[in-house]
Design a protein around this nucleic acid. Structure first.
Lengths: 130, 130, 130, 130
DNA sequence: GTGGTCTAGACCACT
DNA sequence: GTGGTCTAGACCACA
């Protein structure tokens, strides 16, 4: 599967690239789009597809391995670990999304935008992604 | 005014503190909560209230001054510039918020959360902030 | 303090350099030669003194920080964490040394060297280090 | 002979498996436990007994062959070469062991363990191996 | 000055 | 082919 369909990197962001990869991988697993045992794209595939340095990808993979999210199979590549640390429940996935929404709400408040306007915009964006 | 009411700093975030300050100041001005001519809290006030280093605040102020968002008045401190670069229109404020919502939508998609669930959660958060 | 007095790198070894640094740091703390609150040599100091790349040192520091062995102080450098994970007891330090001695004993056995010869050699080496 | 009696592999070690095999084979020959003309276990025997990949063993054998330590006899397998490069003398075997002991002494020093304690522990371990 | 991140490119070990 | 490690050198954020 083409890694560009899995990952989306904001190079302009101050969020380090390797951290974006780590977080997105965790979300993809929590969301069930990556299942235990699934092979991950190779370091070079991701690096090529996203036009970033292989070492940056490698660093993300290293952290995910240390966390137990991914398993390294010598010479074969990385795969999603058998016992992903936590679960699949909607509650858990919502918990992972909450900080981002809290931040968006904070920004909306500072911009004095009313809830209805913000929700409508967000709704439009969400539907466009489908 | 107590700076802790104006600013909210996430020290754990990878977003640099000075950048959080700059972005939040811009939003507060765009949102009309800080009006042209308003005095800004002193570097020391902010640094003390948020328990961060004065130089971090100073750097944020320096950038805002360069942008023309703030004006430095010798011996008096910083104040909001007379002609804030742009802002105020709903369209402009919405544009400032859009990238954050785009990102939230991306994360929601990775977590396989449906739009209705996400919108309901976001709505709850937005109302709690009011 | 000159890092060459703290660290000794075997560049020829297959043990990665960053791992040698991690292990040696752990031992120096367990041995009491680095106490909680002590500043660590800067990345560039170590890199210069040992003639290795700063990123290699940085990687070691990053791992030690994740383990809670070192603490990062923004703009000031790394220091030994206040609550080093484990203790100082002789038993604990012996436990850290045991795997190396087990390995040495295995090699001695494979070389068919008798215990007396090996112990005498080891004794000589130990005294030379004092 | 069951290869598990000859070889001891630490799969968790950063020392590559093939290198562990090479080093241990050299030591077994230097120690006289493998004599010139002795047949070596087949690649598959070792791989199966140690639960490692046959190619890893093959690579180790290849290196030992290139060194002249082992000889490949078509259709018969590997055997210990007639003129093992060097070895046998106590001085030579001690020289092979010295680097490991040097490293152990370094680690003991970093752990602030005194020579007597370390020697006693090492003596115990050596005797247990006999 | 400090550490953090990234790149481009290299070599190694393993399948 | 896979990931792991290292180098040389760059820029950034922070004190």
């Amino acid at each position: 599967m083409n890694p560009t369909h899995l990952f989306s990197i904001a190079t302009g962001s101050s969020e380090p690239i390797y951290r974006q990869l780590v977080d997105q991988t965790r979300r993809l697993i929590a969301g069930g789009q990556l299942a235990p045992g699934d092979p991950m794209p190779s370091v070079r595939e991701i690096a090529g597809a996203l036009a970033i340095n292989p070492m940056t990808v490698s660093k993300a993979y290293g952290m995910l391995e240390m966390e137990g999210v991914l398993t390294r199979r010598r010479g074969l590549g990385m795969e999603v670990a058998q016992a992903p640390p936590r679960g699949h429940s909607v509650a858990h996935r919502v918990a992972l999304l909450r900080p981002t929404l809290e931040r968006a709400a904070l920004e909306a408040g500072q911009l004095e935008l009313d809830a209805a306007t913000v929700l409508e915009l967000f709704s439009t964006i969400l539907k466009a992604k489908q």
